[in-house]
Every structure is written in structure tokens, then in C-alpha cells.
């Protein structure tokens, strides 16, 4: 870590945070928030957490910004009430904020020193993960082995949370009224989208390469930054790119509502199914080493590596489907008729 660089990035982050809540236009706020996320991504890289940086770059700076755009497109850019007032409530909020800050500052006195290799958080279980990951699982990326193997329960329920969030968005927004199916345009006929030939052509040519990269990120997550979550978000982002710049209806045709929910389900089921397969073979839930009995030419160590690849694939499928589903619902206000 270089502390001078840290200070520069942190200063910019605080400026962006102030700007994004002070600016009087929601579209500007969304763009500044994207810049804020990107600076965060630089900060994570600087602190050595490359996997978090990768996730922040694809989720925070990418998909979140697009979701804000979609929401602003469906509502209004206006900030600021027609009425004035609320001076008192703002004062109360400021007091509460300052009080919270004070409590946190007092609590900070008891924290271990920043970047201390012997702080309590770094001495409990993480030394075991760092020193034993190659021996146990043959996976050099410790983050992947902790995510998918040592703490596989957590990740399974996080995936379930994402699936639930996707279902919640459908439950809140989806409306079936007012759409006449006969009047909907046919699939694969270009009907709308941004009428710029260059942008449409480039976007269409770019999509297969983005998807190939996403598959690489999923499959190579054992050896380099990346994994199911990042790869799934990039796959979803490729469909969002297609929907924004090429044609909404094609994406709606490929990734229909039924398909999205089905894929989200399949992803979570692949994860839990591998866990249950371990259970059926006589080991603990999500103990992949037992899979060496059914996988050809693997020992117990490689079986854990392959088991991780299996559940990462499940995570990627679920995340991709849910990201696309959330975008399609928000941008069309649940009607699935037209996009940005």
C-alpha cells in the first residue's frame, strides 16, 4: 500500500460522496455515483482486495449506474420540493448524524492499528485459509476457495438472497394490464433502439466477446481474480448493453421473464444440488472431497476444486438471470414493452 495514493483516492471519494447527495439533478447524481464506485474500485485494488475491486467495477460502476438511469428514465430528473420548509427535520437529522459520528469516533479508539498483520481479525481463521488452501483444494486464489468451499453455506444463502431480490422486483413492478399481445412486435425484427448505425453495429459485435470474457472469468476464478459473481454480472451486463443500444425486444425474446426466473432457479438449484450430492454420497453438506467417487480421474483435492467450479457456474447463471430481470422490469416499469 502507498499511503499517499490512498489519501488522494479517499479525498476524491469524499468529494464525490458529497457531490452526489448535494447535486440538484438525479441524472447527474447517478453519473457522479458511478464515478464514486469507480474510485472505490481503485481503492480496493490499492488495498490488495482484487476480487472486491472486480465486483465493484462490474456491479457498482456498471450495473448500479444503469439501474439508476432506468429509474430516472421512468420517473423524473427533478430534485427539490415545490414547497419549502423542513428546516427543523434537517437540523434533527444533522444532530443524529453528528451523534452517530461521535459514537463511531469514540469506538475507533479501540480498533487495532490499520494494516497491522497481527490484528485479531487476521489471526483467527484466516491464517489457516492462507497456508492450507493449496494443500486442501489446489486453488491458489484464496478468496475463491474461502467463498466456494470453506464458507460455502454463506455463499449459498447469498445466492438465494439475490434470487429473492429478483422475485421481489417482479412482484412489485410487474403489471400485465394494458399490454395487447397481438400488438407486440415480432421477435428478431429490429423495431427500436438508438438509431445510430455505428453504436448499434459496435454493440452487436462486442456482445459475444464480452460473454466469452465472462465465461473466462467464471472458469478462471480459481487462479485469478474473478468467479461466479463477477462473471454472472458481466454476462448480465452484456444483455443489458444489447437491450440499451441494439434492440429491447431481442433481449426480451432471449431472456424472457419465464426464462429469467427459470435460470435463477436453476442456478440456486445447481448450488444446493451439488451440496445434496455430497450428502447422498455420505459426506457433509457441500463437502466436495467426496465427489471424487463419481468424478473420473480425480483425487480428493481436485474434487474440491471441481466442486467449486460447479457451484460457481450455478452462481453465475443465477446472478446473470436476476440482473437482466431486474433491469428489464425497472426500465419498462414492469410492462416489458420498451426500454431506454
Amino acid at each position: 500500500m502507498i499511503w499517499q495514493l490512498d489519501i488522494c483516492i479517499l479525498t476524491l471519494i469524499v468529494i464525490c460522496a458529497f457531490a452526489t447527495i448535494m447535486v440538484k439533478d438525479l441524472l447527474s447524481a447517478a453519473i457522479i455515483f458511478g464515478a464514486y464506485s469507480f474510485l472505490m474500485c481503485l481503492l480496493w485494488t490499492e488495498m490488495g482486495s482484487v476480487d472486491v475491486a472486480f465486483t465493484e467495477a462490474s456491479v457498482g460502476a456498471g450495473v448500479s449506474t444503469v439501474l439508476f438511469f432506468a429509474a430516472v428514465y421512468q420517473t423524473t430528473r427533478r430534485v427539490g420540493s415545490r414547497k419549502s420548509g423542513r428546516k427543523l427535520s434537517k437540523l434533527v437529522a444533522l444532530m443524529a448524524t453528528l451523534l452517530t459520528g461521535l459514537v463511531l469516533v469514540i469506538a475507533e479508539a479501540d480498533f487495532p492499528g490499520f494494516a497491522d498483520p497481527f490484528s485479531p481479525a487476521s489471526l483467527h481463521v484466516s491464517p489457516y485459509y492462507i497456508t492450507q488452501t493449496l494443500h486442501d483444494t489446489n486453488v491458489p486464489n484464496i478468496v475463491t476457495s474461502v467463498l466456494a468451499d470453506y464458507r460455502g453455506y454463506d455463499t449459498m444463502f447469498e445466492t438465494a438472497v439475490i434470487f429473492t431480490a429478483g422475485l421481489a422486483v417482479i412482484a412489485i413492478l410487474r403489471s400485465y394490464t394494458g399490454v395487447d399481445r397481438r400488438k407486440l412486435p415480432r421477435r428478431y425484427i429490429i423495431t427500436e433502439g438508438y438509431p445510430d448505425t455505428i453504436i448499434r453495429f459496435i454493440a452487436r459485435q462486442l456482445v459475444p466477446f464480452i460473454q466469452l470474457f465472462a465465461l473466462y472469468v467464471v472458469a478462471h476464478g480459481h487462479h485469478s481474480p474473478g468467479g461466479g459473481f463477477q462473471g454472472g454480472v458481466i454476462l448480465g451486463a452484456s444483455f443489458i448493453l444489447l437491450a440499451i443500444s441494439y434492440d429491447f425486444n431481442i433481449v426480451k425474446g432471449i431472456m424472457s421473464e419465464k426464462m429469467n426466473v427459470l435460470l435463477g432457479n436453476i442456478g440456486v438449484l445447481v448450488y444446493a444440488g451439488i451440496g445434496f450430492a455430497c450428502l447422498l454420497l455420505g459426506a457433509n453438506f457441500l463437502d466436495y472431497s467426496i465427489l471424487s467417487q463419481i468424478l473420473p480421474a480425480t483425487d480428493k483435492v481436485m474434487a474440491r476444486s471441481h466442486g467449486m467450479l460447479g457451484i460457481e457456474t450455478g452462481v453465475a447463471i443465477a446472478v446473470m438471470a436476476i440482473i437482466v430481470s431486474i433491469y428489464l422490469n425497472i426500465v419498462s416499469l414492469g410492462k416489458y414493452d420498451k426500454g431506454l
Binding site: V52, V59, A121, T164, V169, I326
Partner: peptide
């Protein structure tokens, strides 16, 4: 230390889910 990285990686992806629900 990889453990906080793992927890926060999943937290970021869950945050996009909660963001979607909040915007909805």
C-alpha cells in the same frame, strides 16, 4: 486477509439486488 474480501464481495452483489428492490 481473504475473509473480509469474501464477505464484502457477496455483500456488493447483494447490494445490487437490494438497490433493484429499492428502485422498484
Amino acid at each position: 486477509n481473504p475473509l473480509p474480501h469474501v464477505l464484502m464481495l457477496t455483500a456488493i452483489v447483494v447490494s445490487v439486488g437490494t438497490l433493484g428492490v429499492a428502485l422498484a
